[in-house]
C-alpha cells in the first residue's frame, strides 16, 4: 500500500472512531476522560514529530502546554481578551521561546536539546508557581469558558466535538508533514546525517522547525485544556507532566502518529479507571517505560503493525 492510500485509510478509521465513540458514553465521566485523552493526544502527535522523526527529545513540553494554558487563562480572564486572540498569543509565545532556545542548541550535535528543555521546563514551572499575582500560584486560577467566534463552547458533547476535530486536524497535518519532503529529509538525516546534508538537507533548520511546531501544538492543547477545566494549576506544567508526554509517545510508538495517539489515550484514560492503583501509578509508569524500551523499543503500535505486516503510520 503506498503512502497516500494508507494515510487516507488511517484518517478514515480515526474519523470513524472519533465520531462513533460518544455513542458508547453512558455519562459525563466518559466525556471527561475522552476529552482529556484527546488533549494529551494532540500534544503527543506534535511531540512525536520531534522524537520520532527529528530524533530529539524534549523534556520540557509541559512548559509549552502550560504557556498556552496560562496565556489563555490570564489573557481572557484578567485582561478580557477574546479567546481566539489569547490562544494565538500563547502560540506566538511558545513558538518564539522554542525558536529562541532551539536555534543555538540544535546547531550542536547530541542530546543538548533534552537538557535545555529540561532546564526551560523547570524554570517555567517555578515561574508559574511563584508569580502569584499573575497566576494565583500553586493554588491555581479560574479560567473563563471558551467562546469561539461568538459561539460558546459548553457541555460535554460540544467540547468533545471541538477536541476531536482538533485532534483530527493535527493528525492530518502531521501525516502530511511526515510524507512530505521535510519528513523524508528528516528520515534521511536519521539514516545518515552526512549524506542527507550532502543532498542539501539543512538538518539543523528542519529540527528547529519541527521543535517549534511541536511546541506550538502543545500550546494549542494547553489553551483548550485551560478553558475546558475552568481551573488551572501549575501542576499541568511541571517536569513530571513533560515526562508523561514523552512516555506516551515512546510507548505508543516513536515515529508512528497513530502510536502517539494510542499511547496518549491509554496512559491518560487508564489511571482514571484504575483509581485503586493510585499508589502504584508511578511504579506502573516507570516499569512500563523500562520494559517498553527493552522489549518494544519501537513502541506498541509499530510493533503490532510489523507483526501483522502492515505499514505503520
Amino acid at each position: 500500500m503506498d503512502g497516500a492510500r494508507s494515510r487516507l485509510l488511517g484518517l478514515a478509521i480515526l474519523a470513524l472512531v472519533l465520531a462513533g465513540l460518544p455513542l458508547t458514553f453512558t455519562n459525563s465521566f466518559w466525556y471527561d476522560v475522552a476529552i482529556h485523552s484527546g488533549i494529551s493526544a494532540i500534544v503527543c502527535v506534535g511531540l512525536n514529530l520531534l522524537i520520532g522523526y527529528a530524533g530529539q527529545i524534549s523534556l520540557g513540553h509541559a512548559a509549552f502546554f502550560g504557556i498556552g494554558a496560562y496565556a489563555s487563562a490570564i489573557l481572557t480572564g484578567s485582561w478580557r481578551w477574546p479567546a481566539e486572540l489569547a490562544l494565538l498569543a500563547g502560540l506566538a509565545l511558545s513558538g518564539g521561546l522554542a525558536l529562541l532556545v532551539a536555534r543555538p542548541i540544535l546547531a550542536l550535535r547530541g542530546h543538548y536539546l533534552a537538557m535545555a528543555t529540561l532546564g526551560l521546563g523547570i524554570i517555567v514551572s517555578i515561574l508559574l508557581n511563584q508569580e502569584i499575582r499573575l497566576t494565583g500560584g500553586p493554588d491555581g486560577m479560574p479560567v473563563p469558558g471558551l467562546v469561539l467566534f461568538g459561539f460558546p463552547v459548553r457541555g460535554p458533547l460540544v467540547w468533545y466535538a471541538l477536541v476531536a476535530v482538533s485532534l483530527f486536524i493535527v493528525t492530518l497535518l502531521a501525516l502530511h508533514l511526515v510524507d512530505s519532503p521535510i519528513g523524508r529529509a528528516l528520515r534521511a538525516v536519521h539514516g545518515s546525517e552526512l549524506a542527507a546534508r550532502a543532498c542539501g538537507v539543512d538538518s539543523t533548520r528542519l529540527k528547529v522547525l519541527v521543535f517549534v511546531l511541536s511546541a506550538m501544538i502543545a500550546s494549542y492543547a494547553g489553551s483548550l485544556f485551560a478553558h475546558f477545566s475552568g481551573w488551572l494549576t501549575p501542576a499541568e506544567a511541571e517536569f513530571m507532566r513533560s515526562i508523561e508526554f514523552v512516555t506516551m509517545v515512546v510507548l505508543g510508538g516513536m515515529a508512528s502518529t497513530f502510536g502517539a495517539i494510542v499511547g496518549a489515550v491509554v496512559l491518560t484514560a487508564l489511571p482514571q479507571f484504575l483509581t485503586v492503583f493510585h499508589d502504584y501509578e508511578h511504579v506502573v509508569l516507570g516499569l512500563a517505560l523500562v520494559l517498553g524500551m527493552i522489549f518494544l523499543p519501537r513502541g506498541v503500535v509499530p510493533e503490532l503493525a510489523r507483526r501483522l505486516g502492515w505499514r505503520a503510520l
Binding site: R184, R187, A188, H190, G191, S192, L194, A195, A198
Partner: peptide, 10 residues
C-alpha cells in the same frame, strides 16, 4: 561516499 551512505530504512 566511499563507504556507502545510503538511507537504508527508506
Amino acid at each position: 561516499f566511499q563507504n556507502l551512505q545510503v538511507f537504508l530504512d527508506m
